[in-house]
Amino acid sequence: MYLENIVFDAVEPRRLGRFWEAALGCERLTDSVDGYETRLTVEGGPVLDLCFQRVPDLSSSEPRLHLDLRGGADQAAETARLLGLGASHLDIGQGDVPWVVLADPEGNPFCVLKDRGAYGDVGPIAALPLDSADPDRDAEFWSWLTGWTPVQGEFRSLSHPSRRGPILELCPEPAPKRTAKNRIHLDIRLESGDRPDAVGAGIAERGGHEIQPGWGELPWRIYADPSGNELCVLPARS
């Protein structure tokens, strides 16, 4: 199993996808009004696809997963570039902090960080902070699911075995997960030899559970991690 996708719900997938493609320097995969995909390849590290799927309305729930971007050598210049692409400043009560909080064209918050040694080889996405009711427990859950391994950080953190690419940070949640679906979630891809039922059993053993949204038969399965954050498990590629 491996982490394959960062998935955004979007009212206008093409508009949002093109913003993030330009922001991160990704390679376009698919382009339609109903779905947009673009690929981030971290040299020597993971390949992550950013997928934008059409929804009629965006969830009003507080974001539990967001992107932290590297500010590079000049945080102010990078912030200006992102504003020029369609981002906007966002006040979430952050106060005086060393990062800049922005919103993408559909209001999803993200941060632009100052350059730090911990993010030296991560690529344009420095971190994927995910709210967690129990970071120790959830770090073990996501490590088993993705194959990513612990690294030192402010929070319980996981990194691709190459030590390149974004860091998955399990952050203490400010409030328990509500019933509304997260706007952004992660997809896991099975590999040849992974058995879907066994993976589902492993998720349940580690505190997650399967979600049955009533959308008919799908080629993937939908789960929640132990803190309630949605994720999808995709079948192995033929």
Rank of each mutant, 00 (worst) to 15 (best):
C111W: 02
L24F: 06
N5G: 13
E191K: 11
E169H: 10
A77E: 13
D197Q: 11
R178S: 15
D9P: 00
D194V: 03
A22E: 14
D138E: 09
I184S: 08
G45K: 07
P172K: 04
D134H: 02
H209P: 11
S60M: 15
Y119R: 06
V199A: 06
D104N: 06
G208W: 02
G86E: 03
K177D: 12
A87L: 10
P235C: 00
D96G: 10
R39I: 13
K181W: 15
L186R: 04
D96Y: 06
H89R: 15
R164E: 08
T30P: 02
P196I: 11
G202K: 05
S143H: 03
C171N: 13
R39C: 15
M1N: 09
L190E: 08
E27C: 12
V7T: 13
L65M: 14
C232Y: 03
I167E: 05
V101E: 12
G93A: 04
V199T: 07
P109N: 07
F141H: 03
V42W: 09
I222R: 08
H160C: 09
D134C: 00
R64N: 06
V199F: 03
S192F: 14
F141Q: 01
S157R: 01
R164Y: 04
S59N: 00
I222F: 11
V55P: 07
I222T: 13
E217Q: 10
R156Q: 11
A87T: 10
R164M: 05
R39T: 14
A139N: 05
P135E: 03
A103T: 10
A204Y: 09
A118W: 07
G44H: 02
V33S: 10
P196D: 12
T79P: 12
G93F: 05
W20A: 05
Q94N: 10
L102Q: 12
L218A: 14
A87W: 02
L67R: 05
C51M: 15
V233C: 06
D96K: 12
H209E: 13
I167D: 07
A80L: 15
E205P: 00
A204D: 13
P176N: 01
D131C: 14
V100R: 03
L67T: 06
F141S: 00
W215L: 14
R237N: 15
G207Q: 03
H209G: 14
G72V: 08
R156G: 04
D138M: 05
E37I: 15
A22N: 14
V47Y: 00
T146S: 09
L218V: 13
P13M: 07
G207Y: 07
W148T: 04
H66E: 15
P135L: 04
L128Q: 00
W99G: 10
P166S: 11
F155S: 10
